[in-house]
Computed example of a mutant assay.
Amino acid sequence: MSEEEAARWMLGEYEEFGFLYQEGAASHLFNFQDERLAYFDQNSNLCIGKSVLAVFNRLTPDAVYERAGKFWRRRLDTDQPGRQQ
């Protein structure tokens, strides 16, 4: 699976459910055993590959990332400007 394909998979999940949890996406991508898609950082956290995130962010310009819950969701009228809330 390429980084583009991984990001498009994430997009499909996000569009289907209206949100996407980072941990679930990282776990799914980690199963492909490709560190470009998902990897463990220095604190042993499972992370989505930076290039995958770059593509996903480009594909979802109106998505908001909830830092406290670690998930992406659709933007609400009440959200502050910016991607992270």
Rank of each mutant, 00 (worst) to 15 (best):
F19A: 05
E15F: 03
E15S: 10
D62I: 08
G12R: 07
F17K: 14
D79R: 00
Y39W: 09
A26G: 09
A68P: 12
S44E: 13
P81N: 05
G24V: 06
K70S: 15
S27R: 06
P81W: 04
A38Q: 06
T60Y: 03
E23G: 12
Y14C: 03
F19W: 14
M1T: 06
N45L: 07
R83D: 15
E4P: 12
A26D: 10
R83M: 12
G69A: 15
R8Q: 14
L76I: 08
Y39I: 03
Y21C: 01
E4T: 09
I48S: 13
F30S: 09
F40H: 04
L20F: 15
R67E: 15
V55M: 06
F17E: 15
R83V: 13
Q33E: 12
D34L: 02
E5S: 13
E4K: 08
P61L: 07
L53H: 02
G18V: 05
L37M: 04
F56P: 00
F40K: 02
L59R: 01
G18H: 12
D79S: 04
Y39K: 05
A6S: 04
L11K: 00
R75L: 10
F32M: 04
R8L: 15
E15W: 05
Y39V: 05
M10Y: 10
W72I: 01
P61S: 06
A7N: 02
I48T: 10
R8N: 13
R67C: 11
F32S: 03
S44P: 10
A26C: 10
G69R: 09
M10G: 10
E23A: 14
P61K: 00
L59S: 06
D79E: 08
K70Y: 10
Y65W: 11
R73P: 01
H28F: 08
D34T: 03
Q85D: 15
R36T: 05
Q80F: 06
Y21K: 03
D41W: 06
H28G: 08
R8W: 12
E15G: 09
Q84E: 13
E3D: 14
N45H: 09
E5Q: 13
R8F: 14
E16R: 15
N43S: 13
R74W: 06
K50S: 15
Q42T: 05
